[in-house]
Nucleic acid binder design. Structure first.
Ligand SMILES: [Zn+2]
Ligand SMILES: [Zn+2]
Ligand SMILES: [Zn+2]
Ligand SMILES: [Zn+2]
Lengths: 576, 576
DNA sequence: TAAAGAGGTCACTAGGTCAC
DNA sequence: GTGACCTAGTGACCTCTTTA
């Protein structure tokens, strides 16, 4: 691919290239290799298109030439489209998190830049953000007239998507600001070469990262009994207790789970590749309808209604996941698990696949162009046995089902907490607060091995393994990336079981203190645990004093993860 | 630096001389010694670059990003040069200099010339003035077609800056003429030697003055008692550099600013109180035209419209500087004003504070929520000179006013970041991302002394001190509490200035990594800084090994604060 | 002859419009 | 109100001209 900034970005919409059919964003970038100007055309022609009329092209208009329609969020932009209500306000002083990429593929295999606000196809870079015509206009009106939209009827956390963007002005405006739209950010004139170059580069690397996918093989969590090394006496006891709790509660449980899983052919073990036959994937789509009917029949058993969880190999939905979740446009590469032959569902299926879906999901939110069954809800948490619900499942049901999945895990954290010497000496209230604030973080540490940074895969507790791309496609952009990062960093430290246990304890007592009554007691506890952790870690690695600080540096990461995660959950609860 | 006119001014932008590597003082002039190759290099080599494409290079696109808008956009642009023909660029850090020189530094330490009109990076000497491409084009069009721009909607006194230069053609053109653009002033061909010499001299003296002030005001970071082992030499250097940056930027700036306030009515408003009410008004008027929304008379002077910001001599900002910044929470004394009883100034009875505003705000001028003037908006950030707006101020105005307040602070953080050894080696993109994610956190540390946990008061940068209750009543609940907690904890550690500086650096590089491209480079930088911090802190307190971990534990707090804060800001933006 | 700016070019976007 | 289209600009680059 030619990344030379020499390529030109056509603006399809305006110049009247594509015949604008109704209901589509006007224009779009279309970077193609230099034509207009005499330029040393590069060997490989890169066509990168930030679509405009693309949408039209998809639904009715003539298909754009196979270009890489791709939209690039601006460098400073924030969370990916798919990301829900996590307002990423990017004020310098207020910045929360940023993210990079917001694009998806066109049916033709190109990439499109999406509206940062609603996920619709972007028509350009408006007010500092890639946005669609709708959001652009909306934002303009919002700032022109000094509008104060009436309060959100929900919790001010409406997920803004193309389909529902007009439902809550308050939240839409909030999202606009959140992604960084601002009058001050306006950019006129042509895109600077340098930036274009950057865009292309990023796109390139994005593609690469998507492509890089491999089978996964995660070693089972070390359940070994690690003899405690000689440490300071006071710490030693604590360490012993905590390690024991860890072993008893987390490791044994996991073993149990693993065993159970192994006995159950339908539920592959935690860390194994999904052995499902490939052909299942292939037929996924076709079988959908079947599933629909099934779904409509019985509501009784949530599990049965869960496409992914349903263990039947023939389960249409279950088989759908790979083909469905992976990026079709990229499917020439294998970004799913190794078990799936990409070409099987990719190449041959492509045309049909798209035709089919196009017909079906015409005008559907294109946040997920590769199509989820209409009406299905996504709750892509690794703890969720059923990340993608059957169409028609109510959000309440989805939530309850999920709840059943995570409850045991939460309970275990509570048990673990009790095993931390001193924890129970905190007042009840503070214990609860701490658990509320810290449970996710502890779980994140506990299950961090589910994220395989090397292969870029995640293994869900239902046993299925998905590629990063797949899950990302489900809307888990920044959160997922952050989890991977975390997992990688934590993993790199090579902690032993007891260290991990102690670390978890530290994580728990280091959770956000908001609402804690007796802070000093907590601080004391924390201090003791941290001292113990330092001792343990440092003694064991006399040569590497960097491990301990590094470990502590995971705490901020966990906070951030915690925020991202709760935003995500909240978003789901509010707007599944 | 070699001032011989023999030096060349490279114009990277156009002729493509210097290949502007992203993030380097790429294009534009680059006055270097005649031959970067063989030359009796002078003691100090000034590389002054009148950039062309520099802008791009720096951000990798637009000047520091649309998103950073509020902050970075202007780092490289001029400080409010209100009056035409006044070309005294005031570098945030170095202002107060009286030269005609209008420039700032590139990341590499070179210098850039800025557009006399808008402060963007100049691409050359156009129509008799250093101007950016935009203003050049604008002026050309203006004179070619005999355009008569439609009248300014405000008072014909719009402050023209990069961000808003397109908002009022009338004023932009006026400014063009004002700074001397004219068809008659065009200068063709090479720069005359004499001219070049002049430029170089100016730059030189500018530089010198910078160095001077720095060395004068900065006493070497506190005595380093403990000799560092050879291994730690590099750390030592880093510590030195960072401490210096800290002193130069955060501490000295304060002093300079304070002094300058009296001398330069045009200086950007910061937290200093305007000593002279009248000038203040004038000043505000001249410098922040942006503020005024409409032509309506009463709107002309933002400063005057701010009940809280109304001038008040007895709150010398000077009381806020060094001591305060160094050891924050410890000095419950340093706060400038004696604590103000909320009710005291809440009531009109305190003419001292509100005489000015009361008149305007219907006898309210009240900070207490329970008596807020109807229609006034609250933006209770300590950096905000005007936490409670006058009734009738539009939210846009309030925001812009606030923006003016924090911009300098943000800019300083950027400067500080540049002073961190290794920071500038990160790619531009990552630098920006990091700054975006970390600026607030750095500022939180920097200004944490504004929070006095002992007295439960907060001192705003406008010099006013409020009780916790007061501010809480303004709607700053949990955020405020968390800030106090943070301040208390950080203060309790009793850091010295150099430690604080280093900690700030760590804070910055420990910001959320989302979107970072070269994570490993960052990690490396982080690791080094943390090591240095540990060394410094630990050596100085051989007996207390807990300080270091405690310091690291502030990082999660900062993350949380960051989130709370950005939520808050966002909330304001949406629903003022 | 090369440095350096005027103008031209045209990729791009803020706003205005008006059918829904 | 919303958003697809249109228009008047805007400004990043490039070519052409002038000057040391
Ligand atoms: Zn949109
Ligand atoms: Zn809403
Ligand atoms: Zn300009
Ligand atoms: Zn104006």
């Amino acid at each position: 691919m030619d990344n030379s900034p020499g390529s030109v970005i056509l603006y399809a919409g305006s110049s009247g290239s594509a015949s604008p059919s109704p209901g589509s964003p006007s224009s779009g970038y279309q970077s193609q290799s230099p034509l207009s100007h005499s330029q040393p055309s590069s060997p490989e022609e890169v066509t990168f298109t930030e679509i405009g009329a693309l949408k039209r092209g998809m639904t009715g208009g003539r298909p754009l030439s196979p270009k890489l329609v791709f939209q690039f969020p601006d460098i400073y932009s924030s969370a990916p489209t798919s990301a829900p209500a996590q307002h990423t306000y990017s004020h310098p002083i207020a910045s929360k998190r940023q993210c990079t990429f917001t694009g998806t593929f066109t049916k033709a295999g190109g990439m499109v830049l999406l509206c940062k606000v609603c996920g619709d196809i972007a028509s350009g870079f408006h007010y500092g953000v890639h946005a669609c015509e709708g959001c652009k206009g909306f934002f303009r009106r919002s700032i022109q007239q000094n509008i104060n939209y009436k309060m959100c009827v929900k919790n001010e956390s409406c997920l803004i998507m193309r389909m529902n963007r007009n439902r809550c002005q308050h939240c839409r405006f909030k999202k606009c600001l959140g992604v960084g739209m601002s009058r001050d950010a306006v950019r006129f004139g042509r895109i600077p070469k340098r930036e274009k170059q950057r865009l292309l580069d990023e796109m390139q690397s994005y593609m690469n990262s998507l492509n890089e996918s491999a089978s996964l093989e995660v070693e089972p969590p070390s359940a070994q009994e690690v003899p405690l090394s000689p440490v300071e006496t006071d710490s030693k006891e604590a360490i012993g207790a905590i390690s024991r709790a860890y072993q008893d509660i987390f490791v044994s449980t996991q073993d149990r789970l693993n065993k159970r899983v192994k006995l159950d052919p339908d539920s592959p073990s935690y860390f194994q590749n999904n052995p499902q036959p490939q052909d299942a994937n292939h037929h996924g789509h076709a079988n959908m309808p079947t599933f629909h009917s099934t779904a409509s029949v019985g509501y009784a058993v949530p599990a049965a209604r869960c496409p992914v969880a349903s263990s039947d190999k023939n389960c249409p939905v279950s088989s759908m996941d790979n083909s469905r979740y992976s990026y079709p446009a990229l499917s020439s590469q294998n970004h799913c698990t190794s078990t799936v032959d990409p070409h099987k569902h990719a190449s041959p299926a492509n045309p049909h696949h798209y035709n089919h879906s196009t017909a079906q999901s015409q005008g559907q939110g294109n946040t997920c162009p590769w199509k989820l069954p209409a009406g299905s809800k996504v709750l892509a948490c690794p703890l969720n046995a059923c990340p993608v619900s059957a169409p028609g499942t109510s959000s309440q049901e989805v939530w309850e089902s999920f709840s059943q999945c995570f409850t045991p895990a939460v309970r275990e954290v509570v048990e673990f907490a009790k095993g931390i010497p001193g924890f129970q000496d905190l007042c009840q209230h503070d214990q609860v607060m701490l658990l509320k604030a810290g449970t996710f973080q502890v779980l994140m540490v506990r299950f961090c091995s589910l994220f395989n940074p090397k292969d870029r895969t995640v293994t869900f507790l239902n046993g299925k393994t998905y590629s990063l791309a797949t899950v990302r496609a489900l809307g888990m952009g920044p959160l997922l990336d952050t989890m991977f990062d975390f997992s990688e960093k934590l993993g790199a430290l090579g902690l032993e079981a007891d260290e991990m246990a102690l670390f978890m304890a530290v994580v728990l007592v280091s959770a956000d203190r908001t609402g804690i009554q007796d802070v000093s007691a907590l601080e004391q506890l924390q201090e003791g645990l941290i001292r113990a952790l330092r001792t343990l870690v440092t003694r064991r690695r006399p040569d590497d004093s960097a491990v301990f600080p590094k470990l502590l540096l995971r705490l901020p990461d966990l906070r951030t993860l915690n925020n991202l995660h709760s935003d995500k959950l909240l978003a789901f609860r509010i707007d599944p």
